[in-house]
Amino acid sequence: MITFEEAIATVEEGEKPSVLLGNGFSRAWDDSIFNYANLLEAADFDAREAEIRALFDRCGTYDFEVVMRALVSAKAVLESYGGNGPLLETIERDQQLLKDALISAISNTHPSRPNEIADKQFTSARRYLSRFNQVFTVNYDLLFYWARNMVNLPPEAYLTDDGFRVGCKWRGHGTNQEVHFLHGGLHIFDRGSVIEKHAYSEARTSIVDLVRRNLVDGRFPLFVSEPSAEKKKARIEHNPYLDFCFRALRKSSGTFFIQGHSIDEGDKHIFEQLKRSQVEKFYVSIFGDENTEENTRIKANARAYLESGISEVEFFDAQSVAIWEE
């Protein structure tokens, strides 16, 4: 495989590529925090603890979405065979409990403040991110948000627009929005008539602390954690902020990088948008031996989901770019 620098060197002079960040972006900082096994260990399923953990064991996974899909399938089968009401209601409650537990687990394992990350690491991440124009992310955590908002760290010119304005309310149309949280995030809240975000400030309570307070009061951040691409798309299209970000994918053109994403079927809605775009070249990161079963699947999916009459896919070594270099 080629390196990241070799890939980005192919971009035409004057063009700035776009990027989609997957969970690998955050795991590159600390794999022990930002992985499903750790989130499952931290999750609290309340009175359904034994039953839901047994589901993870039966599915042979740490992935919350896999278990969510299993619950959706179970409900569909029961409905087809005339299943009774109480059991269907239990499955529906478990679906909601699973989503709530995921949000709580992320907030409880997340670094509380950006000073837990070294300035050199933020500088390295900012240098990497500054190579791109439009930035899309499916991550819920705050690492990218913190990196792009740190002040007094190079490169100083890296000040991207996320569409939020005075009072931290999203404005959307009429902005030069370059940052798109495709599946929401810890810092974004849907207040019904307005989309708001918690803003980073060293002088105020940390965002993570605010999120935890909100969770205690039953207020959850804007998250898309539905079990399938179809259900994720439906959720996105019913929220003005998420829909705006989603539609921005289709406006992409030129060269597009995908960093740290498993190219899973659960995010096929994203790749369908990109396939309809004017992107001519996709560079997809591969971590480790490209011939493993997992990486072979990633490469096959990337070609199937992204290649079109005008676009082609090439792969680069994810380890050739030290995003969080100390």
Results as ranks from 00 to 15, higher is better:
Ser107Glu: 09
Leu222Phe: 04
Leu21Gly: 05
Ala118Gln: 12
Glu280His: 03
Ala199Cys: 12
Leu215Asn: 04
Ile2Gly: 03
Glu294Leu: 07
Ala9His: 07
Arg297Pro: 03
Ile2Tyr: 00
Asn84Tyr: 08
Val138Glu: 12
Arg127Leu: 06
Asn214Gln: 13
Gln319Arg: 09
Gly83Ala: 10
Ala203Arg: 14
Phe144Gln: 02
Cys245Pro: 01
Phe189Ser: 11
Pro221Gly: 12
Ser285Lys: 07
Ser112Pro: 06
Asn133Ile: 00
Val77Gly: 02
Glu13Phe: 06
Lys197Val: 02
Val321Trp: 00
Leu215Ser: 03
Phe164Ser: 08
Glu280Phe: 01
Glu13Gly: 05
Val151Gly: 06
Glu314Gln: 13
Glu41Gln: 14
Phe122Gly: 12
Gly288Gln: 05
Arg48Val: 12
Leu97Gln: 12
Pro86Gly: 11
Arg27Trp: 12
Glu92Arg: 15
Asn108Ile: 00
Glu202Val: 05
Arg297Lys: 13
Leu159Gly: 07
Leu21Ile: 04
Ala125His: 09
Lys231Val: 09
Cys168Trp: 09
Asn149Gln: 12
His180Thr: 01
Val19Arg: 03
His261Cys: 13
Thr137Arg: 00
Tyr145Val: 04
Val179Ala: 09
Glu226Tyr: 02
Val72His: 14
Glu65Leu: 04
Asn291Ile: 02
Ile323Asp: 01
Asn176Leu: 13
Tyr36Val: 01
Arg303Pro: 00
Thr292Val: 03
Arg276Thr: 13
Val138Leu: 15
Glu326Lys: 13
Val321Ser: 08
Ser26Tyr: 10
Glu13Asn: 10
Ala101Lys: 10
Thr10Tyr: 00
Glu226Pro: 04
Glu237Ser: 12
Lys281Glu: 11
Arg113Gly: 14
Glu202Asp: 14
Leu210Val: 03
Phe271Cys: 00
Lys233Pro: 08
Val284Glu: 00
Val19Phe: 02
Tyr36Gln: 05
Glu41Leu: 14
Ser285Asp: 01
Ser73Ile: 12
Leu249Asn: 06
Ser277Trp: 03
Asp209Pro: 04
Phe34Arg: 06
Glu312Pro: 01
Lys233Asp: 11
Ala248Asn: 15
Ala147Met: 02
Ile236Pro: 07
Glu280Asp: 07
Lys281Cys: 03
Glu6His: 02
Lys197Trp: 07
Ser225Gly: 14
Val138Pro: 11
